[in-house]
Design a protein around this nucleic acid. Structure first.
Lengths: 336, 336
DNA sequence: ATAATTTAATAAAACGGTTTAGTATTGATA
DNA sequence: TATCAATACTAAACCGTTTTATTAAATTAT
């Protein structure tokens, strides 16, 4: 690999008594005009010499890297890592490699990664967008680089997108809380900067569900703030006269903050307040009480993302992009 | 990037009125015999044309890919993802990219990835080894490919290794339990197949600590079995006459199984049994009771791994490999 | 028998850089 | 004056593939 002088296509050609071109045809499985005997001869030599084509030489001409890049807004969400695992496995089976980059919710890092992966000629890109780089996203689309977005839809960008039916998720959450007789339901999400679609939609779904169940919407019960301020917000809510008896945590990180708050304040679940989280968490089953959550079908979503990117890479179709909305799954446990 | 006919080094050369070679020298920052004026001229043209060198053409001759591969035995351990995040960030700053591959504890997948990354000419490899591929590991070393192992030491392989002082971790665990007056301490780990160093060492440390504290070692209290059998083992232990009053969970996954068991059996922590986990877990603080854990200094370990691999890549030193042992950190919470 | 077509293979030109060996030019040294 | 060294640059080879254009031989059609 390094010292071991590499075996090249030329060595194979010499050993098999044919030309480089023929070997190349063989390597690319274009057997059309090749006699069975030469084909077998080359096959044998390749095996014997343990020849492995050089990816770089190959790419230089063919422009295919057999790599796709994944840029994830924040790798700390279990949702992200689960999807990544599925995609990675699924592409791996097709001989395609995955490069993972973590933008840490930082749009600048995201741009840097987009450029870097583009410069590395990845065959396609799977992005969990931060949402803040409209022009970069559209540049990718314009340049016909296969892209699929996950989790978030970007306003004005026409690209394949795999995401949760967020309104349905909120509706499920509200209805579950309503069934356990909660009528003052707080909704906690992260800030709505960049118009991040899931957050907006989850709030929208919450409102619609309330109206469906004929519960008055109260603005004070909705809070969109950074993670570090969640506890303050909860303090405010629990000290006010509309003390919530139900909480919807907009994602896994918020759920953790809320649980931490409830633990500190010794507020009992579900007696004093019921809680339900959007996004499943690893400790849901073992928590006291076990946590009712609304899970995203990560497996199906990951598989779909892999399928789309493969299709876009193979046939450079001009198919019109579609947004795939996956239904949430309610996992009833004990917290609600 | 795709349609947009790429700018090549030749375009730059023409625009700047110099030869390709000179531009190449410039790109590689070899300014020795270059006049200030040419240098500035090229600089300007590169900027204007937004020239980006083609990685593949570059590698073809220079054999540097500016990529390092990470092969992780099992990406579900939080320890792994944390380390990966640190390494990735740290290498990223040096303009080096990271390819992450997950072997899912499957030695065959690990071999496949090793070969694949070697074929892609990665500059170096960071491996959380499954432990079962001795000959492949030594082939890498023989071929002088920079490698650093994380978490596990492979018997007979001389390579830089970054790992926890596992004996110290067990000792800390035992001493913490002893301090809270526990004398029947169960030790749970995953199977000892492939002689995985951390598991062996953790058991070794457990034994030594017991003897230090003058507690008799009882084989029945030690269990090394697959995750799915942990609950059976615990059932056995709790039904026997040496019902443990303290548990050491050998890693994060085992801790979860143990907590699940204790929850199902309504065994109270820490009254009936104290528990301490090796590896920190995300929910340690919010659990009832908060979980006392022994954390690995992932940040320091990740930084060290990045530092070593960088050094090995840059200067192809013949420095003798060293095993770095990091001290565990006790995080006292409420479960013990 | 000759022309046209199909089959099987090849030589040579890319691809976009890096590297090696070399060439002027100038100034200093013997 | 001839020699040498340092400076500033370049031409051409090379890296290992893919691809295009071409050719030679074998087969079929006219």
């Amino acid at each position: 690999m390094k010292e071991a002088k590499t075996v090249t296509i030329e060595d194979v050609a010499n050993a098999a008594g044919v030309s480089k071109s023929t070997v190349s045809q063989f390597l690319n499985k274009r057997y059309e005009y090749m006699s069975k005997s030469t084909r077998e001869k080359i096959e044998k030599v390749v095996e014997e010499l343990q020849f492995q084509p050089n990816h770089f030489a190959r790419n230089l001409k063919s422009r295919k890297t057999k790599m796709v890049g994944i840029i994830v807004a924040n790798i700390r969400h279990v949702f992200s890592t689960e999807i990544i695992r599925i995609v990675e496995q699924s592409l791996q089976e097709q001989g395609i490699h995955v490069i993972i980059c973590n933008a840490d919710d930082n749009p600048e890092k995201e741009v840097a990664y987009i450029n870097l992966l583009a410069a590395r000629n990845v065959d396609g890109l799977i992005i969990f967008p931060t949402g803040a780089n409209y022009s970069e996203y559209s540049r990718l689309i314009d340049n016909k680089i296969p892209v699929v977005f996950i989790d978030r839809k970007i306003e004005g960008i026409l690209a394949d997108t795999v995401m949760l039916d967020n309104e349905a998720a909120s509706f499920l959450a509200v209805s579950t809380l309503v069934k356990s007789n909660r009528d003052r339901i707080a909704m906690l999400t992260l800030p709505l900067t960049n118009n991040l679609s899931p957050r907006l939609e989850r709030i929208e779904g919450y409102k619609k569900a309330l109206s469906f169940f004929k519960i008055d919407y109260r603005e004070e019960l909705v809070s969109a703030c950074p993670l570090i301020n969640i506890k303050e917000e909860l303090t405010r809510l629990f000290e006010s006269d509309i003390k919530p008896n139900g909480i919807i945590a907009g994602n896994d990180l918020i759920l953790k903050e809320a649980l931490s708050f409830l633990k500190e304040q010794k507020i009992s679940i579900p007696d004093e307040v019921a809680i339900i989280g959007i996004d499943d968490v690893s400790y849901a089953d073992i928590y006291h009480p076990a946590l009712t959550t609304i899970a995203q079908p990560t497996k199906e979503m990951g598989l779909k993302a892999a399928e789309i990117i493969l299709e876009r890479i193979k046939e450079n179709t001009q198919k019109v992009p579609v947004v795939y909305r996956f239904s949430p799954e309610l996992k009833i446990r004990e917290s609600c």
